[in-house]
Structure formats: structure tokens, C-alpha cells
Design a protein around this nucleic acid. Structure first.
Length: 303
DNA sequence: CTGACCACAAACATCTGCAC
DNA sequence: GTGCAGATGTTTGTGGTCAG
């Protein structure tokens, strides 16, 4: 075990309360618990790094957990009823960047897609997945998708009554320049091999992919044991083929906003989050990102 | 193991549109 | 013009990740 983690263990055991890395190091120096071999200008940052890594890597098996961002405590006290509940309630750290797609992503052959969609470039999801193409999927590493195949993206939209949740894309969220700083109402993610499981074979994990993306981006706390489908009403709606610059097969997933969920920009890293009334005419359609523009018609045609 | 890196939030500053 | 609110832009500090 790293000596920094030993120090944290000892201090937290002594104090019996959640502490920041800086507080732990300060206490450790007071108690002369820091071996002479450990040195540096910003040792609290090193301790913070060690704790973060340990939790990230070992998850539930780590001796540590977070009670708040930057506050660490010992897992063994989670069941100690003599301590305040706030000391014993773990939080999941917000990911800096949404998990990069390292695994393999879902693709279809362009010829198969063309055959089914033809000139219209759209289809209902039911028709699409119900057809034989639903059996002809492949998985590819992102960088090695052949020219004649197209990646599948799930686009989640959050619906409430006649409105859809919109926001402005931040600098970090999307590198593609015609997406940057645009207005949008989609939460997109490539559909991967990991999204597929025994229970979602009919839709190849597309709905789960969308629900995970929206829960991550909106920072909706979902326990590890919770089934995301119990939290959200989500249905796969429409399939759209984008032949443009970002060639992709887009799976539109509509998610009903749960009653209890009120998006507030305070907890979000998304700018200018707001409900867009679909029954009204929308100004500056050109200010939306290409995918939002594309599905706007689909959404509005319902109202 | 250290510390650089960088995504983010918070704090602060500036701009814009509107009422008076 | 001033005052205000909300949007937008900039700076700064912190937390999490990763190269070396």
C-alpha cells in the first residue's frame, strides 16, 4: 500500500470524520506521521491524487470513499451508526470528461442501411430494428470503422409536456466545430459493445446508452443497483441517417422528464439550460447544432 | 512517487436590453 | 442619461487524471 494512503488511513481513523487531503496532511505533520522519504511542494495534491486513484480503480473495494467532492472518509465507518449520516453517505465523483469510448462501437453496413431507409433517410425505430438489419450489426474500434460502415449514435432528448430540454454546448463537450458553442437539445453518445446485455438485445442497448448519457450529463444521481429504466421512461423513437460531415446513424430516444427532476444550472456544467416549447415557432434554427436541426422536424411534427 | 495538466465551478467583470 | 436584470465573458482556484 502507498505510504500516503497509510497516512490518510491513520489520520481519518484518529479524527473519525471526513477530511480534505489538505487537512489530512496538516494533521499528519502535527502528529509526525509523514516519513522523511515523502517530500514535495504540494504533498496534499499527491495525497489527493492517491485517494482519487484508489477510489477510481478499486471502487467499492477501496478503503476510502467520498462524502462530498474533495472530502474523504474510511469505508469501514459506513456502518458505524454512532457517526452522523452525512459522514456515511458516499457520493460518486463527477467525471471530468464523459467516459471516452475505448471499447468497440456499434456499426451497420451502409449498403444495408441504404436498402432499408432508401431516399427518405428516416424510419421508425420499430420498423428498423424489426427488419433483418437488426441482426446484421457489427462492433468496431472507433478509429478502424471501414468506409462502408456507419457508426450508431444514440441521441437522448428530455421531454416534458410539449417541451424539450435545451442548452448551449460548452467548449469541452464536443470538439467538432459545427457543434461547438451551439444550442442543442440532444445528449449524444456512441452505442458500444458494453451497452448490450441480455435484457436489451431487441434494441442492441441503444436505449440504455441514451439513458446513461443523459444521467451522466445531467448529473442525475443513480445508485449502482438502480436500473436506469426504472428511473426514466424512455423509448426509442426514430432512426435518421446523417450522410453529412459526421456521417452516422442516429437513434432518437425520447425520455420523459421524471416529475421530481428540476434541472438547475447550478448543478450542471451545461449553459443556459431551459425548456423549449415545441408548439411555438423556434427562432434562429441555424444556431442549433446539425443533429438538433435534423431532429427538430421529427419532434415538431408531433405537435 | 511527483507534479503538470486540464476540466470544471465559483467569483467576478462586462455587455445588452429595457424601463424610467 | 441612470438603474437594473439577465446573459455572456474572463479569471482564478480546486479536484481528478496521467505522463514520466
Amino acid at each position: 500500500m502507498s505510504s500516503y494512503l497509510d497516512i490518510a488511513q491513520a489520520i481519518l481513523d484518529l479524527e473519525k470524520k471526513p477530511m480534505s487531503a489538505r487537512q489530512i496532511m496538516r494533521r499528519a505533520f502535527e502528529f509526525r506521521l509523514v516519513p522523511s522519504g515523502l517530500y514535495g511542494r504540494t504533498q496534499h495534491k499527491t495525497l489527493q491524487a492517491r485517494l482519487s486513484e484508489d477510489i477510481l480503480l478499486r471502487k467499492d473495494r477501496s478503503d476510502f470513499f467520498r462524502t462530498k467532492p474533495g472530502q474523504f472518509f474510511l469505508r469501514k465507518y459506513i456502518t458505524d451508526a454512532t457517526l452522523p449520516v452525512s459522514y456515511r453517505t458516499p457520493i460518486a465523483a463527477r467525471r471530468r470528461v464523459r467516459e471516452l469510448v475505448n471499447g468497440r462501437v456499434l456499426t451497420f453496413r451502409r449498403s444495408d442501411v441504404d436498402e432499408l431507409l432508401g431516399q427518405s433517410d428516416t424510419s421508425t425505430a420499430k420498423e428498423f430494428l424489426g427488419s433483418s438489419i437488426g441482426q446484421k450489426f457489427l462492433y468496431r474500434h472507433f478509429s478502424t470503422i471501414p468506409e462502408d460502415e456507419v457508426a450508431v449514435w444514440s441521441l437522448a432528448v428530455m421531454m416534458r409536456d410539449q417541451s424539450v430540454l435545451g442548452y448551449r454546448i460548452g467548449r469541452y463537450r464536443d470538439g467538432r466545430d459545427d457543434f461547438q458553442l451551439k444550442r442543442t437539445f440532444v445528449f449524444s453518445s456512441a452505442v458500444t459493445e458494453e451497452d448490450l446485455n441480455l435484457f436489451n438485445f431487441n434494441d442492441l442497448g441503444i436505449v440504455d446508452s441514451a439513458v446513461t448519457a443523459i444521467a451522466t450529463d445531467l448529473d442525475i444521481p443513480v445508485g449502482q443497483d438502480d436500473n436506469l429504466n426504472n428511473v426514466f421512461e424512455a423509448q426509442l423513437d426514430t432512426v435518421l441517417y446523417d450522410h453529412g460531415r459526421h456521417s452516422a446513424l442516429i437513434m432518437l430516444v425520447k425520455i420523459d422528464c421524471p416529475e421530481w427532476f428540476e434541472p438547475t444550472s447550478r448543478r450542471l456544467s451545461l449553459n443556459n439550460l431551459h425548456w423549449i416549447d415545441l408548439s411555438q415557432k423556434i427562432n434562429n434554427v441555424a444556431d442549433f447544432d446539425p443533429w438538433s436541426q435534423r431532429i427538430l422536424h421529427t419532434l415538431q411534427s408531433t405537435y
